[in-house]
Amino acid sequence: MSVPHIGLYYFGALSLVLVGIYGVLVKKNLLKILISLSIVETGVNLLLISVGYITGRSAPILSEGIGPKQAVDPIPQALVLTAIVIGVATTAMALSVAITLYEKYGTLNIEEIRRLRG
């Protein structure tokens, strides 16, 4: 049961994810839940980026001076571009749903938004 030593960036990204999940599990207000959801997404994106980093190399723009050996792994950066947009899309949808919810229920406390159950 050795404590796994992981890089600082991993630690940061992972703790972001955990904080986000904590927010979802505990907070009662819907907006806070949505915010913690986007925290989770940022954490995950950070994790995705930090996986691709190779120490001592620079951004993968192969202009003069930077050859294939000096560039970082470009794929995670391409993936994260899409992941961010997906995060934006989910949050946009969530907010519009929250607006309608507030209009219909008059509250954002998830304890009261329970008409559909059983």
């Binding site: 839940i33 954490g43 989910t90 949808m93 969530a94 309608t100 919810l101 559909l116």
Partner: peptide
């Protein structure tokens, strides 16, 4: 109201699921 509530639940759970998938 119900449709929005259902969508909200789907978004929260789907969001967590897809983040862990990522």
């Amino acid at each position: 109201g119900e449709a929005a509530e259902a969508a909200m639940k789907y978004i929260v759970l789907g969001g967590i699921g897809s983040s862990f998938f990522l």
